[in-house]
Design a protein around this nucleic acid. Sequence first.
DNA 1: AATGAATGAGTGTTCATTCAT
DNA 2: CATGAATGAACACTCATTCAT
Lengths: 194, 194, 194, 194
Amino acid sequence: MDRRSQILQMAGHLFSQRGYHATSIRDLAQALNLQGGSLYAHIASKEELLLEVVRQAAARFQEVLEGLPEAGPKEKLVALVKGHLRVIAEELPRATVFFHEWKHLSPPLLEEAKALRRRYEEGVQRVIAEGVEKGVFQVENLRLATLFLLSALNWTYQWYRPQGPMPLEEFSEAYAGMALRALGAGEGGEDGQA
Amino acid sequence: MDRRSQILQMAGHLFSQRGYHATSIRDLAQALNLQGGSLYAHIASKEELLLEVVRQAAARFQEVLEGLPEAGPKEKLVALVKGHLRVIAEELPRATVFFHEWKHLSPPLLEEAKALRRRYEEGVQRVIAEGVEKGVFQVENLRLATLFLLSALNWTYQWYRPQGPMPLEEFSEAYAGMALRALGAGEGGEDGQA
Amino acid sequence: MDRRSQILQMAGHLFSQRGYHATSIRDLAQALNLQGGSLYAHIASKEELLLEVVRQAAARFQEVLEGLPEAGPKEKLVALVKGHLRVIAEELPRATVFFHEWKHLSPPLLEEAKALRRRYEEGVQRVIAEGVEKGVFQVENLRLATLFLLSALNWTYQWYRPQGPMPLEEFSEAYAGMALRALGAGEGGEDGQA
Amino acid sequence: MDRRSQILQMAGHLFSQRGYHATSIRDLAQALNLQGGSLYAHIASKEELLLEVVRQAAARFQEVLEGLPEAGPKEKLVALVKGHLRVIAEELPRATVFFHEWKHLSPPLLEEAKALRRRYEEGVQRVIAEGVEKGVFQVENLRLATLFLLSALNWTYQWYRPQGPMPLEEFSEAYAGMALRALGAGEGGEDGQA
DNA sequence: AATGAATGAGTGTTCATTCAT
DNA sequence: CATGAATGAACACTCATTCAT
């Protein structure tokens, strides 16, 4: 891994643990056995680092959407939930920054971060909408259902720990079940207009 | 409202909007038409301010738990969801600080904040556990179900805006419905062992 | 004792213990069960307090000089040493400020403090000069002998504690003996050209 | 001389002239043609600077004790007095800080400063004690005699100026003479048990 | 690439002092 | 007389960033 990647990795780690503002360039340099000024041979600014971490996380989440199987809504939703939680488990620091620290970007870059987040949310909404259209999901309000699902998913970065007692597979299986039920697509029913 | 309450209110507002570290004492003072140093006639430190805001929010959430009706699990859960969302709607800045900024407290005070959050989460878990015991809720894993619910509820502070297009009543009604279904207590069924 | 005297006493106490700059007006007020601003009904400024304490100490030392017995040089010197040490013992805080903290006065007032100290030193020098003229003291260099004596006397405020194990009388008796010998006026000899 | 030594030297100079609390980090930086914050590339804190200056002075005084000739008590005491006064003359700023400003250290460091001072005083006391044991010095009270000598010596930093009219050699010669007499070891007598 | 010294703005906090009440 | 709120300047110290080496 080249220097820049090392720096980005460590930045993700520290930003996620302490927060962007509470992490100084010197903290970051020290964690890499460097002097503060030395980072500037590799990066343009602290803020660029933040944006880059956000972009990397966004890319991982976007891959989930793009890798969804061509299948019925339930299967798709399960894949989405599992994929989302896998990204969080595998990329906890970056995901944390994606969910929280992006707010500290300043206007020009902030827009990009917002757009990345919006794009993902729209993708999630499409998955639900498709299920509703096909009569598999029953929701009163599409937007609200999307936000309910995203909330349940996003907040997990706050408490799920991959090294913890619950393996990812068990965790995401159970989570997907609750998500389906919340969307009115309980266990039994066929997937699609059977 | 006395000066200290004004300061606390404004601190909650700014901490929630910009984050604790990105809000300087001078920012806070300026928002109150004061000089930076003048705040120290009313507060002991910036950190004390943060803790106080966290405490106030925690108190509001705790009231919800304590005001739950003596009723069946479904009714109780609905009241919990609605109460939680009402606190978020009515106390958006403080709730935001309660969910996020508490992390920036330093060790002695950090423990108090963690304890306050833990106490609330345990209360929520008890409500779900009761429903499970009475056979009203069907969940695979109690802890996970609690975290699912808390996630769906907590993250709302990120996107729900009381001045937005959706009135609180409609929002929380729909949200409660999804929560119930997620816990395996769909519409129909009696509340309790009918 | 009126308020102003109380304030002056406490100021002497705190200035001597912590130093002028390390004692804040609020420290002083607090020690008197007052609010910081309240002191200004009684004093003009912090610096005025310092000068006043210096003046009070200077007056006590000056009294020693003026109360010296009309007697031979040895007797006079013994009275001077004992008087000086008594003032230190009885007025430790003020004496400490007189010896040290006067330096923090700013130019206009600084001159007064310097003059007070100079006046006392000149008085001490006259006592020694008289002994030299009368052939009782044998010193190589009058100025140096004076400074030697003053040094031995002044520094005592650093270590002599009236509540300590050595009673003032014993202490100053022994001290006077060493002073006399240093000035070449050992035990035996008559006092004056008998 | 490297930057850190320059800073320490200037710190000694300013602390001795104005006092520790009356010397700001910006004063110090300005005297070195730097910005305030720039000092922190070289030092850890203002207090560290104070302790370091105290240590350097203590080392110089301790060298005097350790370089004392193996000779009779009178010769040794003369060497001690002259050595002590030479350190004051050559290291006036540091010596001043050693005598006065050490009090502003806070507890953990304060103890070190006290220990350094105590060690030196004990060394001085041993020199006198030896002379007393050998019958060369006659003192009523060993501890008091030590404090008398130390007082006469220490206070000199307040008034002796190396650039002044009196050369160090003449000054310390005369001072040593008075010290010897104060200890009851006048000119004539042999040095030792003749 | 990396260092180490420097900058200038900014941090939270304290200060002596003022003043309406 | 005393209070409590306020000021404006100062404090020690940290920050992101620059740059000669």
